[in-house]
Simulated assay, not measured.
Amino acid sequence: MFDYDSELVRYQERLWEALDIRPGDRVLDIGCGTGRTTREAARAASPGTALGIDVSGPMLARARREAESEGLRNVEFVQADAQAHVFPPEHFSLGVSRFGTMFFADPVAAFANIGQALRPGARFVQLVWQAADRQEWHAAIRAALGRGHASPTSGPAADDPFTLADPQVVAGALTAAGFTAVDVADVREPVSYGPDADRARAAVLQLWMAKELLTDLDAESAERALDRLGATLDAHDTGDGVWFDSRAWLVTARRR
Rank of each mutant, 00 (worst) to 15 (best):
F2N: 11
F2S: 13
F2I: 09
Q12F: 11
Q12I: 07
R14Q: 15
R14N: 11
L15H: 08
D20L: 15
I21N: 00
V27W: 06
I30P: 00
G33H: 01
G33P: 02
T34K: 13
G35A: 05
A42K: 03
A42V: 06
A42F: 04
P47K: 11
G48Y: 13
T49V: 14
A50S: 15
A50Q: 13
G52W: 02
D54G: 03
G57L: 14
M59Y: 03
E70W: 03
E70V: 00
G71M: 07
N74W: 08
N74R: 07
F77E: 05
V78Q: 14
H85F: 15
F87Q: 02
F87W: 00
P88T: 03
P89L: 07
P89C: 08
H91W: 14
H91K: 10
L94E: 08
L94I: 12
S97V: 15
R98H: 06
F99N: 03
T101F: 11
F111H: 09
I114T: 05
G115C: 01
G115N: 00
R119F: 09
R119Y: 09
P120C: 02
G121H: 08
L127W: 13
A132M: 00
R134G: 08
G148A: 13
A150G: 09
S151W: 05
P152C: 06
T153W: 01
A158V: 12
A158N: 10
P161C: 06
F162S: 13
A165I: 07
D166N: 14
Q168P: 08
V170K: 00
T180Q: 12
V184I: 08
V187A: 10
R188Y: 03
P190F: 03
Y193A: 05
G194C: 11
P195H: 07
A197P: 14
D198K: 15
A200F: 01
A203H: 07
V204S: 08
V204F: 10
L205R: 08
Q206D: 15
Q206C: 11
L207V: 10
L207T: 12
E212M: 09
T215H: 13
T215E: 15
L217I: 04
A219Y: 04
E223Q: 12
L229D: 01
A231R: 11
L233N: 14
G239L: 08
G239M: 07
G241S: 05
F244S: 04
V251G: 00
R255Q: 06
